[in-house]
Design a protein around this nucleic acid. Structure first.
Lengths: 220, 220
DNA sequence: AAATAAATTTAGACAAACCTAAAAAATAAC
DNA sequence: GTTATTTTTTAGGTTTGTCTAAATTTATTT
């Protein structure tokens, strides 16, 4: 595996997140995301092009080559493994892990990451619900979403609860909402963002938008 | 706590290790230790002086200010905590941890380090037997002695290995001599300074005086 | 299709952290 | 106490990754 500077890694990772099947990443888009200036993007694209990590023709935007994608997935693997570590072992809140992982991800030592992965028992998703690539860059294709984002009548399973305050946990207990339960959203009330859901095919119940935002599910 | 570049941190840490009560650190000394050129040391000393981290008068060598020492201890704390983590949780060999910790130590986030410390149950010594500073820079001072100096039949624990050459480390591995092991010197042969020792109450083995001088223990 | 606006690139500069080669200071040798 | 040697510093240069301002290309209006 080649070696990259922290800067190069941030570019690769961010291009990966921005590029889609049919849309190249643009200079301005990337500049904004990286809190840098368009001129800096152009500079770096030239460099990444000579390293064969991006395809780039002036004024045409850019996308990762296969090699670039491989590198990006490796960086994302590190980031998400550290996020998982921070949340599960060090008891960081899920909304605090990203910032720290941004730094840890640049420590590049294959053995470290593979041993960390093993230590964490090969987790498949990070605390935000994003899939963690394995050593070969392969990962699950589903993403964890909040109950508030779940479409009507789609079957999903509760897999995570964010912001685990005393009050929230008590409320969940009250409503008998548990990790692993099958859930289907039956109605959405845009007036107050509350939802009517069914849990494990039991009678429907209503929950607040507040609550729905903190309960996460995965399709399937 | 102020913010330092990885480079600055390496300088601070290394000055801390080199400076003694009565001897300033010299330019060449530091250059050799950091695998850099003397001219680069001078450059950096000027910078660290304006930041009030070292006392430095041209041609007179340098030493850390109180502020610089505080910073150095913080970096050493990070380094040794990561070493401990790598050895105790990720099952790295104790002779592999240094290299990885050299990278991890530059991730600066107080909460991360304090939570790591807590997670590791506030270890007092790293896998090489060096004491780990606490949040305030305080650490154990207990005197280590070499195995060669240990009295007959006194129980002690192996806590440190000096002169960590490839050969020495390999030899230790061969003899299954590990940090943390309980050791008792059973006989001393003045003919060649070799020793007969017991490790963790397993059958006695013989080691050379050469080796004994490089293996350090702590009573207890 | 010409004019205007927006996006992108080029040109030139800067800071950090290193380098080499030459000069200066301190130390050691005679 | 000069001279020679070693150590340290200065002067000037390089690379990486950033910047601003100006030029250029592409896209949008009218």
């Amino acid at each position: 595996m080649l070696n990259f500077s922290a800067s190069e890694e941030n570019y690769l990772k961010t291009i990966f997140h921005l590029q889609t099947k049919d849309n190249n990443v643009t200079t301005n888009e990337l500049a904004e995301r990286l809190h840098t200036r368009p001129a800096s993007i152009t500079d770096m694209m030239k460099k990444l092009k000579t390293r064969k990590l991006v395809n780039y023709q002036p004024y045409q935007g850019f996308r990762l080559t296969l090699e670039g994608k491989k590198a990006a997935l490796n960086i994302i693997r590190r980031h998400r493994l550290w996020e998982y570590f921070l949340a599960s072992k060090l008891k960081f809140n899920w909304d605090e892990v990203h910032e720290v992982a941004e730094q840890l991800e640049h420590v590049s030592n294959k053995k470290l990451i593979d041993k960390l992965d093993e230590y964490l028992a090969y987790p498949k998703f990070d605390p935000h619900g994003d899939p963690i690539p394995d050593t070969h860059g392969k990962m699950e294709t589903s993403k964890q979403i909040s109950l508030a984002e779940l479409h009507l009548n789609r079957r999903a399973r509760i897999c995570y609860v964010a912001n685990q305050s005393e009050l929230l946990l008590e409320h969940l207990h009250e409503k008998k909402i548990k990790i692993g339960a099958l859930v289907i959203v039956k109605r959405k009330f845009s007036y107050d963002d509350s939802l009517e859901i069914k849990l494990d095919n039991k009678p429907a119940l209503t929950i607040s938008g507040q609550l729905a935002k903190n309960v996460f599910v995965r399709h399937g």
